[in-house]
Design a protein around this nucleic acid. Structure first.
Length: 712
DNA sequence: CTAGGGTTAG
């Protein structure tokens, strides 16, 4: 793929670069983040990441900036060879410099479609098409029905049938039938219609076969052919093929129109090649193209995928500059993109602007907005939105319902979720599915409502809705917290028997229950579940609990388990192991595990030091791990005090403010631990979720405890 | 899906 940019820029476009200096229209608009300066070949990173490449030496495979900016006149087609040369005389568009011949990367006129007329006998053919569609799948029975085709089989009738058939196999068979019977010459449109059907079946190989057949039979490939090929390749994730056919189009001298052009723009977007897409876009603009909303939807989606706020702003700015009005889809994409870029306020104003412009939001709009509000923890806005949805009778679908439920789970809105869930049960088209149940189990799990969770579990069996692995994880967490170990074992065994494949998160959940078990007998019941899912992890637990275990053995087994664990579950595993140690009074082992976790990079942001302040951030730690980390830290500080080394004015520990309704635990546990140690940390008044101590108090405290060491 | 491009869920 790395070659595409250079080929597009240097060979196939065969056009001079837009003169942005002389072009008053372009110069007023800024590319996001000065993108011009950091063109990279594989720009899948976000714009902020890309800034790192700003001063690096250029990739030898990618054209240098000056290469890209130099006029390509030496390699271009001459003006007179340009099939669209007449466009050069396009009268006084303000941004076209009339003294400078301009080359075009796309045709400003969309390919016209010839519409085929309906015959009087279309009714017969309609009936016959239905018969073919109802026929058996096999080639032989399709062909036997086909023998009864009404007459005359004119070009129009054949096109009508071709257009009506599905699935793709039947379209393809009928196409071959037309070909063998040679009733009339196969024009481009026959190929185009057939390819479209093949695209539904994602049959890229067959499409390519037809395209090559067109080339060898000298049947013209037009913009419709190319855009169909390109979008099929895209849907089959054959992006290199999409680019290849786009380049082939230029080679044959055919200009893409805006449909084909935006199709390839989307290919670059899907590849995360932001620079390339922008270059294409700008060259289109420089050709005098006024893109339609589809193009901006593609660009907005691309920026949304990388969470690029500057990019989203660029899209808005461009639309405004060119006077393109967004439609519902563009608004949907923009709202989604601003949400992903972490700008909920912007997303909300876009939504309001959309309503003010008289648009009715659809399911996708509302799903996007709900996600934004949930992520931003804007419960009030979310609930107001829900009321509006009901009173305006805006459309709902089950994805929107499930998104609302997930949002309630994130915000801890149990009653609201229950109301929604009841709504779903009473609805015709949005009955709760396994995702809905998972969201409810999540809510009950976080809220410690084991009874309600078990009722749902039973209800799922009655309704034959499968519990998925996440639902199982939530339920197990919930039952573990409620100390209902026998129910937990029953749920686990039933789920596994029904085909739930335990993943690392589920194992983490079981492990955390082990740390909560006060009775050895309970712990061993849970461990026997874990044994079936991850026996190595159980072996590690045994090793951790065994006082005789030497550190090197622990280290190598720990590394082994962590290496075979998905990244997201690694820190939770270590947290739980530490909690197990703390609950078994194995404090030394807990410190060893914290050391190993830090050593293997599971706690990368635990410590921060500036000249004025040293801080400890335990927000991603469990209670036991946080306490262990605090002890470790105080021990280190004590050594500093004893050695009379330079200390900052302020010390702080961050436990998080617990914005989540159910997540107050860490701060409370931390406070009581601090109290137990009589350490001089106090809740910070101006920083929620932080404990602070000043140097003087801390030094006094350490000295009062000397010579007894603070930490092991 | 009436020859071609864009949007929704842990």
């Amino acid at each position: 793929m790395a070659a595409s940019l250079s080929t597009l820029l240097d060979v196939h476009f065969l056009v001079p670069q837009a003169d942005t200096k002389r072009n008053p229209f372009i110069t007023i608009r800024q590319k996001p983040n000065n993108r011009r300066l950091n063109i990279t070949c594989n720009s899948s990173k976000s714009s902020s990441d890309q800034s790192q490449t700003l001063f690096e030496s250029p990739n030898p495979n990618s054209p240098s900036l000056s290469d890209q900016l130099k006029p390509l006149s030496s390699t271009t087609l001459s003006t007179t060879n340009d099939p669209h040369a007449q466009l050069l005389s396009k009268p006084k568009s303000i941004w076209i410099n009339p003294t400078k011949p301009r080359r075009y990367v796309l045709s400003l006129q969309r390919q016209k479609r010839s519409h085929f007329s309906h015959n009087p006998d279309v009714r017969d053919f309609k009936r016959f098409a239905r018969k073919l569609n109802d026929s058996d799948y096999s080639e032989s029975s399709f062909m036997s029905v086909l023998e009864q085709i009404p007459y005359p089989v004119t070009r129009e009738n054949a096109l009508f049938i071709l257009n009506s058939l599905k699935p793709w196999q039947k379209t393809h068979l009928f196409f071959k039938w037309i070909k063998t019977h040679k009733l009339f010459p196969l024009e481009t449109i026959f190929y185009n219609i057939t390819m479209k059907s093949l695209r539904f079946g994602r049959q890229f190989e067959l499409i390519e076969e037809l395209a090559n057949e067109m080339v060898s039979n000298e049947i013209e490939l037009d913009n419709i052919t190319y855009s169909t090929i390109i979008t099929c390749a895209k849907r089959c994730n054959k992006f290199n093929k999409a680019v290849e056919w786009f380049e082939r189009m230029y080679k044959t001298g055919l200009m893409p129109d805006e449909v084909t052009y935006s199709a390839i723009l989307d290919v670059y977007g899907k590849l995360g090649k932001v620079e390339e897409a922008l270059t294409l876009y700008e060259r289109g603009i420089a050709s005098g193209w006024k893109p339609d909303p589809v193009t901006y939807s593609i660009l907005a989606k691309m920026f949304g995928e990388s969470g690029d706020y500057d990019g989203v702003r660029y899209v808005l700015q461009e639309m405004k500059a060119l006077g393109v009005q967004p439609n519902v889809i563009v608004y949907n994409t923009l709202i989604e993109a601003t949400g992903k870029a972490g700008k909920p306020g912007m997303a909300r104003s876009l939504f309001e602007e959309m309503l003010d412009s008289g648009f009715t939001p659809d399911e996708k709009t509302l799903t996007a907005v709900v996600k934004v509000y949930g992520k931003a923890r804007w419960s009030k806005d979310a609930m107001e939105l829900w009321e509006k949805m009901r009173s305006n009778k805006w459309p709902m679908d089950f994805i929107l319902y499930n998104t609302l439920l997930n949002m309630c789970a994130d915000l801890g809105l149990e009653e609201e979720a229950e109301r929604l869930f009841e709504d779903m049960k009473g609805s015709e088209h949005c009955r709760p599915d396994s995702w809905s149940y998972t969201a409810m189990l999540n809510i009950y799990g976080s809220g410690g409502k084991a009874d309600k969770a078990m009722l749902l579990f039973d209800e799922m069996s009655e309704r034959a809705i499968d519990l998925n692995v996440m639902g199982c994880t939530c339920l197990i967490q919930c039952l573990g917290k409620a100390k209902r170990i026998d129910d937990l074992v029953r749920v686990f065994d039933l789920s596994v028997n029904k085909g739930v494949k335990p993943d690392d998160r589920l194992c983490g959940s079981l492990l955390s229950v082990v740390s909560l078990c006060e009775q050895i007998s309970d712990a061993s019941k849970v461990l026997s579940c874990l044994q079936k899912a991850n026996s190595k992890l159980v072996a590690l637990v045994k090793l951790v609990e065994e006082e005789q275990t030497n550190f090197e053995t622990l280290k190598s087994e720990f590394r082994d388990v962590i290496r075979n664990t998905v990244v997201d579950a690694r820190r939770p595993f270590c947290n739980c192991l530490i909690d197990i140690c703390r609950s078994r009074n194995l404090h030394g082992r807990a410190h060893e595990l914290l050391y190993l976790g830090t050593f293997y990079g599971l706690y990368p942001d635990l410590h921060h030091r500036t000249a004025d302040e040293w801080s400890l951030d335990v927000r991603s730690l469990s209670v036991g791990a946080a306490n262990t980390a605090l002890e470790e830290w105080l021990g280190t500080l004590a050594k500093f005090v004893q050695r009379n080394e330079a200390l900052p004015e302020l010390f702080s520990a961050h436990t998080g403010a617990g914005t989540h309704k159910f997540s107050q635990g860490l701060a409370n546990a931390f406070a009581s631990h601090v109290k137990g140690l009589a350490a001089p940390f106090r809740h910070s008044e101006n920083r929620a979720g932080s404990f602070v101590a000043n140097r003087e108090d801390l030094v006094d405290w350490v000295q009062s405890r000397i010579p007894s060491a603070v930490s092991p």
